[in-house]
Amino acid sequence: MPLRSSATTGLKIVIVGGFGVGKTTMVKSVSEIRPLSTEETMTRAGIGVDDAQGVEAKSTTTVAFDFGRISLNDELVLYLFGAPGQERFWFLWDRLFSGTLGAVVLVDTRRLADSWYAIDRLEHHGTPFVVAHNQFGEPTHTLDQIRDALDLSGDVPLVACDARRRESSKAVLITLVNHLHALSSARQVTS
């Protein structure tokens, strides 16, 4: 099993998705070390550029990347990199994606279109990913409806989560690790 090739396996994981979907919240909630934060106060220069509709309480935005770490067990350590969401920071994504083994795409059903770009980029890079629906309030859509709206193929795992809760965020990461496992096992069977 490639994931178990050494006593401690570090996996680089990126967390992507649109502006205000909860990427920074997720890295903060699961990290066991003090997360690197590159949050900056949103200024009036961003009115009309950074659309905070639906997340009006949001007062800061990520301008480089979030970084945190979580050990899932004695052997498996995830290094988490949260990408900045807005278009002006997309130039950073290529570097962030290099060496990445898997990704979490966070989606907010009020602004699903914001996640298309992330999914396109991951598919283009050939990076395996899972999609997590970060629930703000009462769910208004079923996972099947979200899968249809995103035009996700059946083999991409799709789960619901609350990015503010450690256990919930951790469950998303476990889903991703299991997905990576399944993909690598499938590859071994066919080769």
Binding site: T43, R44, I47, D50, A52, A57
Partner: peptide, 8 residues
């Protein structure tokens, strides 16, 4: 800073 609650 943007005013709190100020949406685009």
């Amino acid at each position: 800073p943007r005013e709190p609650q100020q949406s685009s």
